[in-house]
Write a protein that binds this DNA or RNA. Structure first.
Lengths: 359, 359
DNA sequence: TTGTAAGCGTTATCAC
DNA sequence: GTGATAACGCTTACAA
């Protein structure tokens, strides 16, 4: 493994100074065409790849941002990342999962600090301590995440999502709609939306809480529900169920089928997240979509904003993506009374209607 | 955002030289306890985080390895990563997805080169060109990946997995077993295993090929199969189906149910990959597991091996994880006739038996 | 055991 | 336009 060629090698080969090479590589316009060509061929011939280590050390920025997510199993973050990448063009993203790192006693935020990233996207639970003394421009992405003084929050409006799902079922004529909820901030927000919508429509809310947010927990809870209804003494089986996530909706469908209840004829079901399984032909699950892609895009724009005024006037050439103004939602204060009120954006979710709701 | 403290700041505050600080931080034993304590408190007080940029530049290694995967949607890689992390303790991993990067015209391998990673794990399709002139110790992880001269291959034996699934169904008494396959190297290997096992048992193979490896494509293909069987003229419906992945198995189950065929009573189904959905109570899918966790662990050990003799005699203190010898499988040659025959490991898959196969 | 000093490969600031 | 020449924050001989 021969050592990698350096900018010196390139300069020598092209017969110019190291500075000129640097200029060419950064796309400066004040370089003669011949010199530029000479440098470029030298680069190609040597298969030269500039060292980001050195560049970061010498320069004022690293042109990189760190993304902290909960865990890679969360399929949810894939489109988020795509969105981030789209609006954060020009920056290289590196991802770390809080769960695994924590398991190893490593703090992802600390890791990114030592990498000297220019900014941070916090999309997962992060150790309180590490976050307090951040010292790096950051945005919080998602809902269950903490509110950070100085860091804008970009999240999907899950309460609104809960209302959306409930309204859909109600408008389909259902009056006895059960909400299958669970623990956690997301579940709570979605459930709150359900309660609100039910209340406004004069319908009686009926919440069932599973032990966990998994398919099997939902299966068990729903099975219990149908079993009780069968007994006769308990309240009758509902005609519709809003599950706070898709796997749980699958659990409901399974439990119903086990009791001979078909979906959607005997029971209308709506899930949440519009995960890949929702689109399965076999399930065709109506689901609320938080549009993670857009979430990422908006968060990226917000961070870009932060980065821009942290670095002072327009870092020329930095506009790898569209530097449009941050959308209007980004105006409200997240915490009115705080010392450093950061703007917040709550993005409206959409309802993806499929067969499971019988629409 | 005050500038981050440097090793100089720590040294000054602790009343020692920069070198001493460096020694302490790297856990050298040749440091007096007082000085060590002084340094440590200074570090804490200043909230000092060493710069990996500077460390990488100055040192001979960066203690980091790059992992290239296909796309983050591939849930498969999450446990792989966990395995890698386990055996690559001491190195920091960074992940890049080939798909998204390619979309942006970025070459992940090039990116890692400029980051000066010590090693590479190639778990996704990588541009041929970039790979040829690698110049970095690497291992190839997975199956559809290219064979790289000099890079060991660590993969799951999917042919064996295909046999496993088929044998399971055959031993359950099924004789008319259909293999629902698709395009791609993985599908081909799994299907080949099916054919082999059927052949050895004197059973007639019957392969159905879906247009894609998705649930919906499988649903369509399976629906066609049952429809034809119903007609009477065509061959009868099989009593068992081996689908080359879990979503496709779900498609089969759905199509069967649509025809009034219940699983497993009327049809036994086996999938592949043991993805999360396979464990769903509602599906309870028997599935072949390639044990991605172990795959990652073995690949990590192999890379560690490479890294060790690339860096010369035991880089003291590098043993962040177990430096056990690489397993026996790592002995065979991947490409006997090649210039640089790299060792290869084909890991045996396991069968996870659930209800869908009626066992 | 501890300090000194020479790099490491860039960027950035000047002169020319 | 182009080229010296300091930083940048750390590791690593080599001295002391």
């Amino acid at each position: 493994m021969a050592k990698a060629p350096t900018i010196y090698d390139v300069a020598r080969r092209a017969g110019v100074s190291k500075s000129l090479v640097s200029l060419v590589l950064r796309g400066s316009s004040r370089v003669s065409d011949e010199k530029r060509a000479a440098v470029l061929t030298a680069v190609a011939e040597l298969d030269y790849t500039p060292s980001r280590l050195a560049a970061g050390l010498a320069g004022s920025r690293t042109r990189s941002v760190g993304v902290v997510i909960d865990e890679f199993e969360n399929l949810w973050f894939a489109p988020v990342l795509a969105g981030l990448r789209a609006s954060l063009g020009g920056y290289s993203l590196s991802v770390a999962d809080a769960a695994l790192n924590a398991h190893l006693g490593l703090d992802p935020v600390e890791a990114f600090r030592s990498l000297r990233v220019d900014g941070l996207v916090l999309a997962g639970e992060v150790p309180e301590a590490a976050v307090q003394r951040l010292g790096i421009p950051a945005v919080v992405l998602g809902t269950r995440s903490m509110l950070l003084p100085g860091a804008p929050l970009v999240a999907s409006d899950e309460r609104a999502g809960g209302r959306l799902a409930t309204a859909h079922l109600a408008e389909l004529g259902h009056r006895d709609i059960v909400c299958l909820s669970a623990t956690g901030a997301s579940s709570a927000a979605r459930e709150a939306g359900y309660r609100e919508e039910m209340g406004e429509r004069g319908l009686a809310p009926r919440v069932l809480r599973a032990a966990r947010t998994t398919e099997s927990a939902a299966f068990a809870a729903a099975a219990g529900l149908f079993e009780a209804a069968r007994g006769g003494a308990a309240p009758p089986a509902p005609s519709a169920v809003f599950a706070v996530n898709d796997p749980m909706a699958v659990g409901v469908i399974g439990a119903a089928r086990a009791r001979g209840i078909e979906v959607p004829c005997g029971l209308a079901v709506v899930g949440y997240d519009d995960s890949p399984i929702a689109a399965y032909e076999t399930l065709s699950l109506t689901s609320v979509s938080g549009d993670p892609r857009e979430l990422g895009e908006v968060a990226g724009r917000a961070l870009r904003e932060l980065l821009a005024d942290a670095a002072g006037p327009v870092p020329a050439g930095a506009s790898g993506g569209a530097r449009e103004p941050v959308p209007a939602e980004l105006g409200r204060d997240a915490a009115p009374g705080r010392a450093a009120p950061a703007p917040a954006a709550l993005l409206p979710p959409r309802l993806i209607v499929r067969r499971s709701s019988g629409a």
